[in-house]
Amino acid sequence: MTGFARADGANGAASWTVEVKSVNGKSLDVRCRFPSGLDAVEAFARAEAMRVLKRGNVNIGLSLTRTARQSPLRLNRELLAQVIELAREIEGAGAERPRIDALLSVRGIIETVEEDGGGDAEGERAELEAALTRSVAEMLGKLAQARLDEGRHLAAVLSGHLGTIASLTEAAARTASLQPDALRAKLKAQLAQLLEAVPSLPEERLAQEAALLIAKADVREELDRLRAHIAQAHALLAEGGAVGRRLDFLCQEFNREANTLCSKSADVELTRIGLDLKATIEQFREQVQNIE
Rank of each mutant, 00 (worst) to 15 (best):
1 M>T: 15
2 T>M: 05
5 A>D: 05
6 R>F: 15
9 G>V: 07
9 G>Q: 04
9 G>F: 03
10 A>H: 15
14 A>T: 14
15 S>W: 03
15 S>N: 08
17 T>V: 15
22 S>C: 13
22 S>Q: 10
23 V>S: 05
24 N>E: 10
24 N>T: 13
24 N>V: 13
27 S>V: 07
29 D>C: 04
31 R>D: 03
31 R>A: 12
32 C>Q: 07
36 S>G: 13
39 D>P: 00
41 V>N: 02
42 E>Q: 11
42 E>V: 04
45 A>R: 01
45 A>T: 01
46 R>D: 01
47 A>D: 08
50 M>E: 14
53 L>W: 03
55 R>Y: 05
56 G>S: 06
57 N>V: 09
58 V>E: 05
58 V>R: 05
59 N>M: 10
63 S>E: 10
63 S>A: 13
66 R>D: 06
68 A>D: 10
68 A>S: 08
69 R>M: 10
72 P>D: 04
77 R>T: 05
77 R>V: 03
79 L>S: 02
81 A>I: 01
81 A>D: 12
84 I>L: 12
84 I>H: 01
92 G>F: 04
93 A>E: 14
94 G>S: 08
96 E>N: 07
97 R>N: 08
98 P>F: 05
103 L>T: 02
104 L>Y: 02
104 L>P: 01
108 G>R: 00
108 G>S: 01
112 T>P: 01
112 T>A: 06
113 V>E: 15
119 G>A: 08
121 A>I: 04
122 E>I: 04
126 A>S: 15
130 A>L: 14
131 A>K: 06
139 M>C: 14
140 L>V: 11
141 G>I: 10
141 G>N: 12
142 K>W: 10
142 K>V: 12
142 K>Y: 07
146 A>L: 11
160 G>T: 13
160 G>V: 06
163 G>R: 13
167 S>Q: 13
170 E>N: 10
170 E>D: 11
173 A>M: 09
173 A>D: 14
178 L>D: 13
180 P>C: 08
181 D>V: 09
181 D>F: 04
181 D>L: 06
183 L>F: 12
185 A>R: 10
185 A>W: 04
189 A>D: 14
192 A>M: 06
192 A>L: 13
193 Q>L: 12
195 L>M: 11
197 A>H: 15
198 V>M: 09
205 R>F: 07
206 L>V: 13
207 A>P: 01
210 A>L: 12
212 L>G: 08
212 L>F: 15
214 I>F: 08
214 I>K: 10
217 A>I: 13
221 E>P: 05
222 E>H: 08
223 L>W: 09
226 L>C: 11
232 Q>T: 10
233 A>Y: 07
233 A>Q: 06
233 A>M: 13
240 G>Y: 09
240 G>T: 08
243 V>A: 06
248 D>K: 02
252 Q>T: 00
253 E>D: 02
253 E>P: 00
253 E>G: 01
258 A>D: 00
260 T>N: 00
269 E>W: 00
271 T>M: 04
274 G>N: 02
274 G>C: 02
280 T>Q: 09
281 I>D: 00
282 E>Q: 05
283 Q>K: 14
285 R>E: 03
291 I>F: 13
291 I>S: 03
292 E>C: 11
